[in-house]
Design a protein around this nucleic acid. Sequence first.
DNA 1: ACAAAAGTGTTGAGAGTACACCCATGC
DNA 2: GCATGGGTGTACTCTCAACACTTTTGT
Lengths: 240, 240
Amino acid sequence: MPSLTEMSPEDSAQFGLQRPPALTVDVVIFSLALPEHNLNTLLIRRANDPFKGEWAIPGGFVNYNESLKTAATRELAEETGVRNVYLEQLYSFGNPNRDPRGHTVTVTYFALIPADSVQVIAGTDAAEAAWHSVYKPPPLAFDHARILQYALQRLRYKLEYTVAGFKLLPAEFTLTDLQTAYEIVLAEKLDKRNFRRRLFDGDVIEQTDRRREGGEGRPAMLYRYRADADPEVKARRLFP
Amino acid sequence: MPSLTEMSPEDSAQFGLQRPPALTVDVVIFSLALPEHNLNTLLIRRANDPFKGEWAIPGGFVNYNESLKTAATRELAEETGVRNVYLEQLYSFGNPNRDPRGHTVTVTYFALIPADSVQVIAGTDAAEAAWHSVYKPPPLAFDHARILQYALQRLRYKLEYTVAGFKLLPAEFTLTDLQTAYEIVLAEKLDKRNFRRRLFDGDVIEQTDRRREGGEGRPAMLYRYRADADPEVKARRLFP
DNA sequence: ACAAAAGTGTTGAGAGTACACCCATGC
DNA sequence: GCATGGGTGTACTCTCAACACTTTTGT
């Protein structure tokens, strides 16, 4: 970036003499609907807009002196009530005509949250917030359909190479649930024994002494993620 | 992003009533110095600044109605004279105090260019542009040292999984040069026969009928990248 | 003929993949 | 006792990694 004193006319415009592109963040939230065997994303319905009534990914403007991740966290909470999620940066989209109201650059984030872990509420900036299937999304405002596809691709990539799938489940989960999570996201059936072997080889989950009671058939042991495990990124592919 | 009519006070500030964060792009350019066995990056020296005299990654402000990639391409050309490079988005950095002059969000890009392919000239916005070793960089302005490390990590990752290393070489190259490129970037010695086997298994390069003359020893065949090849991303690790 | 770099195959180890039966519980 | 989902081991294939000698050219 050039210094203040060596700015061209366009450059100095960015410090207030002429409007720069607007800057927003958008947050793709993924969660599972295990009973329905579906992958969901959290969308808001736009209220008063060229896009009135259309669904969109939650997000909003970045404030001055606010970091990108803070802005994303804040907008997510304001618009949907979802808090305490680990956000990961996805990509930045800046096509000048992605928003018909004016040039807007958006930095996108994504996160995984446990099934049914949050109560979704519509915030002040959104008329409504609700879960929708990632595989059959409603029509989306702006370029949000593209952003959603990009996020899904990244989620799959992440699950192929890491055991991050547990983030889509409650703190304690059965191995069958975890495998089901992977099968829903990867849209592919996995072998039960191979799945478990790689999971244990990775050395990142541990058995609890509790079982899931109440279902049909033999009760399954509950497992949890090991707090002391390497959180990320094996170099080799784990799944499928 | 909320609509215009549902904006909070902070939101409407972003459309001009109060200053938003500034928005810039920065471009990390990698190239090889094969004789010196070194990986270089193109830096500019800042002219009149809190950072006067320090080196920095080339970049600058995004204009209104200009896409991010266009802005990156333009700034690179203006500041260094480098043109016609394929840019890939890296990450966006937005920490409020990464620039002491005010909150500035930067979208970073990186690119690989063939050794000695371009004539570097200092543009109007930079006092000087020059190649520097990635492994022993000079002190850098802002958070540019961190950006450079991040770019190097991504470059290594890319070369481990793809045959993109040829982008660091002229259109026709010897297999030994290509292997040397990988060894410089990965900072690791590779096995000649295994390297060649994986390269040919990938089916992305082809022999020309020309040889590199003039050196010592047996002349090496020249190869080129196959225009019709899959450009990207094998799922499995290729190198080392 | 010798110095220098190019080019070329094989083997053993480890990882990946496919596959089927017994177990514990609730009704 | 039977229906339901939970849990476990092995054999084959293929990929990965280690390793050394012959060939072609210039001097």
